[in-house]
Design a protein around this nucleic acid. Structure first.
Lengths: 234, 234
DNA sequence: ATCAAAAGCGAATTATCGCTCGTATTCTAA
DNA sequence: TTAGAATACGAGCGATAATTCGCTTTTGAT
């Protein structure tokens, strides 16, 4: 691409310390968003907190929106990284275990950076390219639908679209609210109970039967069969 | 209260046409929010659309945030007005009917002014006094918990707090997403199916049994196990 | 009809913020 | 060593918006 030798306000690939600059900027955006709120996140403030000048900011980001988008993207990728493996595994599990894993995975995802997740969800006007929370959820939705079709003989007859909508929406809302709005109310212990309840809700819906926990008397956690135990650690 | 005769920027009770002015302002805010988005909602623009001068605006609203808060409040009250009666009725119904009524009521509430509801939910940075969506939902939550305690012998043993959280969160999320994000996908017909599914989800969770639909073709439900499968087109 | 209080007005005043641009500094490679 | 490219700087421009204030118009009680 033909470039004008000077004054190139458009964004730019980076090579050395510029990498650090970009990281610092995104990180500063996150910090300000979480600690001071979206409306305090002026480009000048972001640059200041990043220990960088506004000019440098505009070397790498064409506008303020791009900064927030980059941050949201980074967050999404991080969640995906943490979760992708387990999500794939679930595809081959029988219903009850698959759903349990899904719920656990949703919790884990929301715990990657709850404060940031909340700030992103609540404070960012969902406009333009920032409205793309949808894309992420569309994936979950498609994945779940695929699961339902693959395991259709283990569940009652359902419309895959409608059922996916019901299940994915419920799981997302449950974990989102629990982690982001009630983390005080939900101890780690209670979080396990929440996973149980979410599983019960969705499995009951899909199979029409109550879950038959394998003989554990302790109501509390994860009656989970052994293998499922380890993952919902911290 | 001692008042300074002139220049009283704080807000004010009103008496005559001033009522109309206030209404016009709130209404204009709603229109702009829905049609042009939050960032186009400058005080000057709001006043202009309301057919009023900025000066008048500041007679009644101390700041821009107050305007939006007033609008949100008006919307909440309207939903409550539409829904309060039916909500009370549900308290005395047996589980299955109560839950069905609840889900139907949630849909009805979200249909009061979906566009505004969506704008309020998506575009307004939830900060300060605008973060009060919580209050409203806390009521639903308490109400539901009361129901569970009253009808404890009709359901399996549950922790009322946890179960309320699960049920209220699910119902809210389901109806919110259906009405606000998928209204294209959900015809009136499909909306009935959604009510069926929401009911099934929650009743199954609370009772551990699958719903036994009364003869299909009842007015109330889109039931019809057979017909459930069609019309949620693409 | 009269007048004081209430309501309304809108140009002017602040205030903020996104973003640019000319310049200074640092890096890299020959 | 050194030149040119990459990176960084930050005062300041321009635009937009929130809010004010002195003034006019309307209202309603007397």
């Amino acid at each position: 691409m033909a470039r004008k030798p000077s004054t190139k306000p458009r964004k730019q690939a980076s090579q050395r310390r510029s990498r650090a600059t970009v990281d610092a900027l995104v990180e500063a955006t996150a910090r300000i968003l979480v600690r001071e709120g979206f409306d305090k996140a002026s480009t000048n403030r972001i640059a200041e907190v990043a220990g960088v000048s506004v000019g440098s900011l505009y070397q790498y980001f064409p506008c303020k929106e791009a900064l927030v988008a980059a941050l949201a993207d980074r967050h999404t990728r991080e969640i995906l990284r943490v979760v992708r493996g387990e999500l794939a595994e679930a595809m081959d599990l029988p219903v009850e275990q698959a759903v349990r894993k899904l719920v656990a995975v949703a919790v884990k995802g929301h715990r990657v950076d709850p404060a940031l997740h909340r700030a992103l969800a609540e404070q960012i006007p969902r406009v333009g390219k920032l409205g793309d929370v949808a894309t992420f959820n569309r994936d979950n939705y498609a994945l779940f639908k695929a699961y339902l079709e693959k395991h259709r003989d283990e569940i009652r007859p359902v419309d895959p679209d409608l059922a996916s909508f019901v299940c994915v929406t419920s799981i997302e809302a449950l974990t989102h609210n629990a982690v982001l709005h009630h983390s005080k109310r939900f101890s780690d212990q209670a979080m396990l109970a929440l996973i149980d309840e979410g599983t019960r809700l969705v499995v009951g819906y899909l199979t029409g039967r109550e879950i038959r926990w394998p003989g554990c008397g302790e109501a509390e956690s994860a009656c989970a069969r052994g293998s499922l135990r380890d993952n919902h650690g911290f």
